[in-house]
């Protein structure tokens, strides 16, 4: 599998570290339902069989966190952007 790193170009996936679902965002810790929201954030996943937005870190490259859109059924990669720049929304 090759990840199209916006900085480095298409690179072998073994250069990257994988984190997981990029559609979850860290909740407001001050909110009254924070514990519930953090539980959901830390533990529950859509785990789709299809398109999945996910975090990859170019550990042996430019050290950038990427949001990669990939199909979990075919492994087809539909795009990658810098996590820093992307609007992380569900």
């Amino acid at each position: 599998m090759r990840i199209p790193c916006p900085y480095c170009g298409a690179r072998d996936a073994h250069e990257f570290a994988y984190l997981g679902d990029a559609t979850v965002s860290r909740p407001d810790p001050a909110a009254p339902d924070a514990e519930d929201a953090f539980f959901t954030y830390a533990y529950l996943r859509d785990n789709p069989d299809g398109e999945h937005r996910e975090y990859w870190y170019h550990a042996n490259g430019c050290r950038q966190w990427l949001v990669v859109t990939r199909n979990t059924r075919t492994h087809e990669i539909l795009g990658a952007s810098l996590a820093r720049a992307s609007e992380v929304t569900a």
Binding site: A17, R26, Y55, Y57, A59, Q64, W65, L82, R84
Partner: peptide, 17 residues
Amino acid sequence: AGKMFQHLEFCLQVLWP
């Protein structure tokens, strides 16, 4: 060492850019 650096980069780039 490696894991922590990766974690801090995540915090900076993803959580609090």
